[in-house]
Design a protein around this nucleic acid. Structure first.
Lengths: 134, 134
DNA sequence: CTACATGCAAATTTTTTGCATTACA
DNA sequence: TGTAATGCAAAAAATTTGCATGTAG
């Protein structure tokens, strides 16, 4: 994904901080605020936590970044690039992406990487009838 | 669900605070910490926020209560009674339960209550191969 | 140039902890 | 009666805000 392009298309200025945040999220796959901050600090000692927070909000609003909420874990963020499911280890917390196909994901989860998926969390987002009317 | 029984089976003492928390979560369906606290305060002016937090942890560990994480919303809690999916309005934030059947949920979501589900979030929990070995 | 973004410090909000007291079993 | 739970106050962690300064376009 071209970050500069994505920022421009959403009316967000291309700043080195923003690009660094996006790169860091991409590098990690799924990053917490703290992880993003700590890592960017190394090459960018002046960056502020407030900048991370403010940008995460802008980037989520622009749909360049998506929240990943996992049970018992801190909120994470990922680059928004195509729908996929997540697979989480209930022991070590490892979080991975997995192809999102209605028929295949159970199979995929069981055979290739995890055994005995114990619980599936699914949430569907959309406009409810009432909000559609308004 | 019989709350007293559930508590007993998990070695948790039956206190009026605990029962009030469970009842409040059940009444609301999906409640935030703040909602639970505010409502219980009315009939229980001495209850402490710390008690709510401590109990939510115990109740989740005992699997009597489950976290519900929804994008852009505060964490909520629900009584753990059978697997189901969630359906969330992206406009007003309304959160509802929906039957969890692989083939039927899209249909269910579209026809009965929501139109044009715009995004599905799915997370599968289970032990990864590495953790199974250990 | 001008509007938006950054960084700092302070303020808020959220969650956790320690400890004395209370109450369930 | 002993152990676990409660409630308070204080501490720690997470997030937000205001404002002066800097910078991308």
């Amino acid at each position: 994904m071209n970050f500069e392009e994505g920022l421009k298309q959403n009316g967000l200025k291309i700043t080195p901080q923003r690009v660094a945040i996006l790169k860091e999220i991409q590098r990690r796959g799924h990053a917490t605020i703290e992880e993003i901050y700590e890592d960017i600090l190394k090459e960018y000692p002046s960056i502020s936590l407030a900048t991370i927070y403010k940008n995460i909000i802008s980037l989520c609003e622009a749909d360049l970044v998506k929240e990943v909420k996992v049970s018992l874990q801190k909120q994470r963020y990922e680059i928004n690039c195509g729908e996929h499911a997540h697979i989480v280890c209930t022991e070590c917390g490892k979080l991975e992406d997995i192809e999102f196909g209605m028929e295949s994901f159970y199979h995929n989860a069981m055979i290739t990487r995890y055994i005995q998926p114990s619980f599936v969390s699914m949430t569907i987002y959309g406009k409810c009838n009432q909000c559609l009317k308004e």
